[in-house]
């Protein structure tokens, strides 16, 4: 990232941090007054009084203090970013469009999405559908991993037949080894 772009990002992030730390502070105050998260009407005045006397026992003490420090640091970051000339001038249609078309950003989205699909769709779905097949321990996991590895390798590799064959082989072998080594040899329950 270029320095000027970085400072713009810093500016944006510092604003987010300021808001975040303020929110965290409010949550800490709530925690201070009602540590067990009861309904507000169920909190007796006596308990609040005791909290005030024994303030140093409160679970909210450190979180409040830390959120204060985060606020301080983010204000400083804001200041540094402003001083080096960063402004919120980049929130324009064409700039955002260019950002979205950036190859690195697209890869980021694809990788994160694929990982989510693997972890939250493929593994549970395979687990549900294939639970009865017991060729090896963790067969559903094997299938899910194979699909994930193959699609990752195909999505980011060359568009050539040789690569596709190699990917097929590698993902089959790797998912087999991982499933066997973890599930059977080490008896770790697989996801």
């Amino acid at each position: 990232m270029e320095k000027s772009t970085l400072r713009r990002a810093d500016l944006l992030f510092s604003i987010a941090l300021i808001l975040g730390s303020l929110w965290f502070m409010i949550q800490s105050i709530k925690l201070f007054l009602n540590p067990f998260g009861r309904k507000w009407e169920a909190v007796p005045a006596e308990a609040v009084k005791e909290t005030l006397t024994f303030w140093y026992k409160s679970p909210a003490l450190m979180p409040f203090f830390v959120s204060l420090l985060v606020l301080l640091c983010s204000v400083m970051l804001f200041h540094v970013a402003m001083k080096s000339g960063a402004r919120l001038d980049f929130i324009k249609k064409d700039k955002i469009a260019a950002f979205l078309k950036n190859r690195e950003f697209q890869s980021f989205v694809v990788i994160t999405l694929l990982l989510c699909v693997y972890a939250f769709v493929l593994i549970p779905v395979c687990g549900k559908l294939l639970v009865r097949i017991r060729i090896i321990r963790g067969f559903p996991f094997f299938v899910a991993t194979f699909i994930y590895l193959l699609s990752m390798m195909l999505a980011f590799g060359h568009r050539k037949l040789g690569h596709a064959v190699r990917s097929l082989l590698v993902s089959f072998l790797v998912s087999g080894i991982v499933t066997y080594a973890f599930g059977t040899l080490a008896k770790i329950p697989l996801p």
């Binding site: 694929l114 559908l129 097949i133 699609s151």
Partner: peptide
């Protein structure tokens, strides 16, 4: 992205179908 999504979908369907028979 499209190519990849297609790949994934095809594979999911194929493998699940085969294993459903085994099940």
């Amino acid at each position: 992205m499209n190519r990849m999504m297609k790949c994934t979908m095809m594979l999911v369907i194929a493998v699940l179908a085969v294993s459903a028979v085994f099940a």
